[in-house]
Amino acid sequence: MRQVDVVQFGDHLCGWGEGLCWDPDTQLLHLVDCLRNVRGETTLDAPDDLRLIPTPTLPTKVLLSDKADRHLIVLDDGIFAMAETADAYGQVADMPQASSGRFNDATVDPAGRIITGNLGLKANTDGSYWSWQGDGGAGNWSTIATKKGNANGPCFSNDGRTLYFADSPTGNILRYDYDPETGTASNETVFANTFELGGGPDGAAIDTDGYLWSALFGGGVIARYAPDGTLDGTIAVPVRNPTDIVFAGPNLDRMIVVSAMEQPTDDREPSPLAGASFEITGAGVTGLPIGKVRL
């Protein structure tokens, strides 16, 4: 991997930054702060002008939709249409009946389905992955996988036929064969395990070469994996807990990373930049656009 630079992006510190989303239509970068129940939006040229908007419950991800005036946000108890005040969010879909715990990370498949899952704190237990397909009304949920630990970093290959999901408690990034026409996933395999790098896989993004970039929570690095699952390289960031990464900008060539707070350990104090956002420059790669939810 070529020489890169990591610079702080804006001066805001999140309690638990997550859920990055780039909107190419408005040229706005969206993020959430899970700890403080707020979402934020800013431009790439003026990141210090981050606008914070309260959410009614814990937010985890902002999603674009095919309705220009109706973007969505994943909250801990359902999918909601975004609003300017905490009491105005309108529910689009509740959680699946078989779910336990809260929603976590999410993405959109090539057909406009929401791909998401819930937070299970133990490996191979109560976590599940699902897809939601809108039908102009309530829509419906379909199960992708069960007995997982945590739903993180869902993303698709260039052709939309490979789905990746990070099961953070196991350290595994999982790979599925995916049918965009039916929304079904099959042939689960372990694409990579990140524990050898000192952290668990969190948010992720795919570049136009088909390589997967994963933020390693606890590991202080962004790891890049080749399409065959081999490690291509890592980029160190000045915080222990990077949580998500997104390709942004008109050409999708600006890489933004968010992070979360840190707890002191016996041999390490929290970084003063814990919770900050960063931009990775010099990587020389571009990303894939994220789809829009079909409502």
Rank of each mutant, 00 (worst) to 15 (best):
A68C: 10
L50T: 09
A274P: 14
G101P: 13
S157C: 05
V62R: 03
L31G: 01
V62C: 06
D267V: 00
T57P: 02
N193M: 02
D202V: 05
A260Y: 07
G117H: 02
S99L: 09
G78P: 12
K122E: 15
T43M: 02
G219R: 00
T146M: 08
L28I: 06
Y129W: 15
I245S: 00
C21I: 06
V293I: 14
T265Q: 11
N104S: 04
T286R: 04
A236E: 13
M261A: 15
S259G: 07
G210H: 09
E84Y: 04
T230W: 02
C21Y: 01
E279T: 05
E41K: 01
W213R: 14
D5W: 05
A166D: 15
P250A: 13
L75W: 03
L295W: 07
N124D: 10
V258N: 06
S99P: 06
L58R: 14
V4W: 00
G233Q: 05
G249W: 10
L50M: 10
A223L: 06
P154K: 08
P289Q: 10
N124I: 11
Q27P: 00
N152F: 02
L231Q: 09
R2L: 13
A185L: 07
A260L: 09
S259P: 01
V6A: 08
P96K: 11
P242A: 07
D94A: 11
A248D: 08
Y164G: 01
M95D: 09
